[in-house]
Design a protein around this nucleic acid. Sequence first.
DNA 1: AGCCTTTACGACAACGTTGTCAAGATCTCG
DNA 2: CGAGATCTTGACAACGTTGTCGTAAAGGCT
Lengths: 319, 319
Amino acid sequence: MAGVSFKTVSRVVNGEPGVSSAVTDRVREAAAALGYRPNAAATALRRADGRTATFGVLLEDAGNHFFAMLLRGIEDVARERGVAVFTSSTDLDFAREREMTAAYVARQVDALITAPSDSAGEHLRRVIAQGRRVVLVDRTLDGLDVPTVLVDNALGTRTAVDHLIARGHRRIGFLGRDPSIYTSRGRYAGYVEALTGAGITVDPSLVHREGFTGSSPRAAIERLLDLPDPPTALFTGQDVITMTAVSVLQRRGLSDRVALVGFDDFELADLLQPGVTVVAQDPRRIGALAAELALDPAGSGVHLVPTQLIERGSGEIPA
Amino acid sequence: MAGVSFKTVSRVVNGEPGVSSAVTDRVREAAAALGYRPNAAATALRRADGRTATFGVLLEDAGNHFFAMLLRGIEDVARERGVAVFTSSTDLDFAREREMTAAYVARQVDALITAPSDSAGEHLRRVIAQGRRVVLVDRTLDGLDVPTVLVDNALGTRTAVDHLIARGHRRIGFLGRDPSIYTSRGRYAGYVEALTGAGITVDPSLVHREGFTGSSPRAAIERLLDLPDPPTALFTGQDVITMTAVSVLQRRGLSDRVALVGFDDFELADLLQPGVTVVAQDPRRIGALAAELALDPAGSGVHLVPTQLIERGSGEIPA
DNA sequence: AGCCTTTACGACAACGTTGTCAAGATCTCG
DNA sequence: CGAGATCTTGACAACGTTGTCGTAAAGGCT
């Protein structure tokens, strides 16, 4: 339509030098009139560096507030740099994790940003060996030397449990997710450290770790509260479990009697009665940092994003 | 490595007939050993139908619970069918909307699933004219004959406002988003219909529509409650505004005095005091339906997903 | 004017696949 | 045992770009 070779179009579109301004204008006009967009598949295929300007993001659940905000953080950075983002949720299903990793690799993503399960080590190693960039968020795996963004789960939990201990609590329940989840292990470790640091022995009957016990968090909380010598405080190791605890405590009229601190902030935590004290993460920042590491060829190492204890009432109930 | 031509590899990988089982095994072994994955860019480039098994999803905010769940619904269906999903949030910024649409078109998505702004008509028309599949969710545009998934915003709102009227309320505040948002217009229309249907004239001083008024929802709620003759009930036209209303009412100690019904369900709505009555949508179903329409070449028309009034207490406070 | 440099373009190969076609090997059946 | 059918495989073009190179035209210098 502009009466030039397709190579000249390529030059104009990519802003390469060596095209007269008259021809440039003609090409631009024709491109606008036709709604021409370069075919990204062909571009990626031909480019020397093979870059596709695409990330693959693989998280547990894009419907969960924490991961949704993490995704927003990735998006924010990606959009600025013209990178498109594939997303998918695993729901902790390893088959899906493998399948989606393969799907992203087939689509030649420039980087895979993922919160891996413990089992992911093997296939991630292959992905890395093929020279594809991998960035880990929220969770990590031994022996994988890739840029990683984490929080100090043990430290955050220690802060929370110390906070409860300082208010006189000795019997503090722990409600955590399956220990096969990296964050869950760190949080349990922090709980144990805090208690032993204060000279309190860990009472296994106050500990619920999903997958070990088999029962649901709700049943576990009920069980703890039904003990002859029930806990005076609860630490919950994830937002969903925290909300479950709030629900159970409310239904039993114990909201103002049993202290509660949860890991992860969530919407409306301040509007509940009492407000829920939490160890907050900054998932948007975690995501943004991960995306920057994915874009920076020199990016490496483990980056810790700090957590913050937010007092809202539930964690300040004395023993 | 398997000692065959690359065409034979293609046959094995795609399960085409006419390859002996011995060769198939050799190829599979070699592929496994090398971690070979077909290059999706090359495949898409060469395929007769040009399919990329990729969707582009463009919503307002993946961090908002409604859109996050909508995205999950899309993901659920997409994964089943081997489709990868690009996601991006516009935050109502039209420049981003255009930019990301172009980015998805360049990447040859099989379908663009989007909640369009009013301004998107022009560029979407071009995208459709180029033969690319477009599916609208949550919002629609006149003169775009594409598969669409909506809820009946006016009906849902009428149900909510009728519910308040049935409990004796006559002065019912309306707190909505910018009328440039499709859903916001339908919800306001439903509010007006319900009131006039009950013989109540709409009092403009009880109506806040962001963008018209200029002020924030929080300021608007404060203003309404400060009126000499304040509303006895509020209808809030979106989850974020509902949460703001809960916050203001709580701070003023009016939670048990002023009735409240909100559009959109949200987490913890049942754990607030009182529980928040809402007109709930089923965003996951909306997303799943949209994805199915995107995959089905025969999919067309406007599909309405029903809303449901969930009574939790705040909407049952009498005048 | 004659030569060299620069500018502005096009021709062509290549990226890694799939679709088409051809050809050799093997099987079937009278 | 031979002719035809079928089965298995490879050669080659093509998808829409980018990178390399060639070349005609224009410009600069002596």
